[in-house]
């Protein structure tokens, strides 16, 4: 089941921009409004657009449910793993063990409104990316499961 050629061509073009916008929201979650959940939802909307234009069969041939399932599991594992690393370093669970440390994402920021730097935030960008991966997998999976339940033989 796929829509007309106009819809498919428009979906091809818009999908790229939706994906770019979603990854921008996820990557800049510690600087601008947004974050992992919002960015993941935007990316999942892009996948749902592809499903609406081409049908779920075409998307499943390319990616498969395993892809989304493992992306969800990977996001959750990275999220909880980052929280557990703090325990091994002697801090509390969910402590920000990378902030102001000089390592990756470890630059200090000045107080007050400033343009910001991507290389700040400690574990916040890592957790944003983890939550983004998890949400994009989960929300796409919900739509895919519902479609496979309602389509006969699909």
């Amino acid at each position: 089941m796929s829509m007309s050629k106009i819809v498919r061509a428009a979906a091809d073009i818009i999908f790229v921009f939706i994906l770019t916008f979603g990854f921008y929201i996820v990557a800049h979650g510690h600087l601008t409004p947004g974050g992992g959940f919002q960015g993941g939802a935007v990316i999942a909307t892009g996948f749902v657009l592809l499903i609406a234009a081409y049908g779920s069969r075409a998307l499943l041939d390319r990616f498969g449910k395993e892809w989304f399932r493992s992306s969800e599991a990977l996001g959750l594992l990275v999220f909880i793993g980052t929280a557990f690393v703090a325990l091994f370093l002697g801090a509390t669970f969910f402590a920000n063990w990378l902030a102001n440390g000089g390592l990756i994402f470890g630059e200090a920021v000045a107080f007050g409104p400033n343009p910001g730097d991507l290389n700040t935030g400690g574990v916040i960008p890592i957790m944003n990316i983890a939550v983004g991966i998890e949400v994009l997998g989960a929300l796409s999976l919900i739509v895919l499961y519902m479609l496979s339940g309602t389509e006969e033989g699909a």
């Binding site: 919002q38 939802a41 935007v42 999942a44």
Partner: peptide, 22 residues
């Protein structure tokens, strides 16, 4: 703006699609 992005993505995009499927 945080809530606005979440509402636009989930409410306007995904929920409508899920209702369509249902």
């Amino acid at each position: 703006p945080d809530v606005a992005i979440a509402e636009a993505g989930i409410g306007a995009g995904l929920t409508t699609a899920i209702y369509m499927v249902a």
